[in-house]
């Protein structure tokens, strides 16, 4: 039975720990930050939206992300909301919906009536939309916390630091530390987000607002909280949110629904997404080290597939295991 050290307790680290444990490994996770709020995952939108992501991402992202919602549902029953994604555009930018539609699949075009059936609070605000029925979403912070609890119950050890001598005792080391991995091929893409609270509006599913200069999403959380994100800035600076970004995010939220103008801003946050030049994730094995990195803006969508790949390398039964996975998923 392999004895494995997982570095990093973001979404990549926790998912690979789970997959390894399921394959019988002894797993220790080390992360200097106990509450998880230093990871990019903490600031994620949590959309499991492979079809929408195809608008700007390669087909590989769709293929790797297709089974993500099933994975999360199986590991954390009840924490995945399968209500689809609604893509809308203000009247002025309605032409952009066609561009979005031309680049994606897995949606139906809907009109004013269907929009207000899905989201009654948007009644009369938008005349055209795209509905991606098969997509899902989750609440990253809740999911990360619950997944840690599941792992602890399965006997996974959590540490805040591990000495070098102790590190060398492990048979395998899985590096899931994102930007901290200091991989020269990685770059940081800064993302800024806001949490708003409003009792004046209720949404059931993530909304994506098409805007020619600024793609934006509003994801409903519990307790009347909405996550609004996220900027995409080519920089690994993790300093506070800029006034311009707040203004742009708020402006877009306001154009989704004027009620957001009265919302309380309860948090602003910044995460730096690790990305490779092709914006695709990589699982790389070097001797007894495996790196999982470059999940970019698709952490919760891609982590399960990456975790399986890495765990399969450790078990050296990649092919056999993939077949069983396919059977389990009914493919």
């Amino acid at each position: 039975m392999a004895n494995v050290l997982v570095k990093g307790a973001g979404v990549a680290g926790l998912t690979v720990a789970y997959e390894l444990r399921m394959r019988g490994a002894e797993v220790t996770i080390v992360d200097p930050c106990e509450n998880g709020n230093s990871t990019a995952s903490w600031y994620a939108g949590g959309m499991l939206a492979p079809w929408c992501e195809r608008e700007s991402a390669e087909q590989a992202i769709v293929d790797l992300g297709l089974s993500a919602a099933d994975w999360w549902e199986e590991v954390l029953p009840g924490l995945v909301t399968r209500k689809g994604t609604l893509v809308i555009a203000p009247a002025r930018d309605v032409k952009e919906l066609d561009r979005f539609a031309a680049r994606t699949s897995g949606f139906v075009r809907i009109g004013e009536e269907a929009i207000s059936l899905l989201e009654p609070d948007l009644n009369g605000l938008f005349r055209k939309g795209l509905f991606f029925e098969r997509e899902a979403h989750l609440t990253p912070r809740r999911v990360l916390t619950e997944l840690k609890a599941v792992l602890a119950a399965l006997g996974v050890q959590f540490e805040t630091e591990i000495s070098a001598t102790k590190t060398s005792d492990f048979e395998w080391i899985i590096n899931c530390t994102g930007m901290a991995a200091a991989d020269p091929a990685l770059r940081g893409v800064r993302g800024e987000m806001l949490l708003l609270r409003s009792k004046d509006i209720a949404l059931s599913r993530p909304l994506r607002l098409i805007h020619p200069r600024f793609p934006l999403y509003v994801v409903p959380r519990s307790d009347h909280i909405f996550m609004v994100g996220a900027t995409m800035i080519e920089s690994d600076a993790s300093g506070p949110v800029t006034a311009r970004s707040v203004m742009e995010l708020l402006n877009a939220a306001y154009s989704v629904h004027p009620a957001f103008g009265e919302a309380e801003v309860i948090e602003t946050g910044v995460g730096v997404r690790p990305a490779y030049p092709d914006n695709l994730p990589r699982v790389v094995k070097t001797e007894n080290h495996i790196s999982i990195n470059g999940l970019y803006r698709h952490g919760f969508l891609l982590a399960p597939a990456m975790a399986k790949q890495a765990a399969d390398i450790v078990r050296k039964e990649r092919r056999v295991s993939r077949e069983t996975d396919c059977e389990r998923a009914g493919l």
């Binding site: 991402a57 800035i233 690994d236 600076a237 030049p277």
Partner: peptide
């Protein structure tokens, strides 16, 4: 869509001049 696509597009265009916008965040970059 990605820096890799950008690099390939630049090569395919045979351009000799690229425009780059300066983001203030770049100066705070590690």
């Amino acid at each position: 869509p990605s820096p890799a696509t950008l690099m390939d597009a630049i090569k395919a265009s045979q351009t000799e001049i690229i425009t780059v916008s300066l983001r203030r965040e770049m100066s705070g970059s590690k």
